[in-house]
Amino acid sequence: MRAVITVIGKDKVGIIARVSRELAELGVNILDISQTIMQDLFTMTMLVDVSGCTRPFGELAGIFSAVGQELGLDIRIQHEDLFHSMHRI
């Protein structure tokens, strides 16, 4: 199963490192990363494969929300189908 991670907020050193470390520890594989600065905001989207994840998928939102709080960013992880259903017929 694949999911989309979005990280939005003020840029600082080590955001990608911190998020990637968390993903590695959880056994989540990164498939694609895109990162840019939009309107002064750090904006990153990641496509990840959670099939090897060591924790139930439902718990990941809480885990990454906590990482987001630690970094002062908004971090979400959502099932990929949400975006496909909205933007693809």
Binding site: V4, T6, T43, L47, R76, M86
Partner: peptide, 16 residues
């Protein structure tokens, strides 16, 4: 493949 703008549009709808 999803575009970044599409992903961010959805996030904005939900968060703002």
């Amino acid at each position: 493949m999803l575009k970044n703008t599409e992903i961010l549009e959805t996030i904005k709808m939900i968060s703002e």
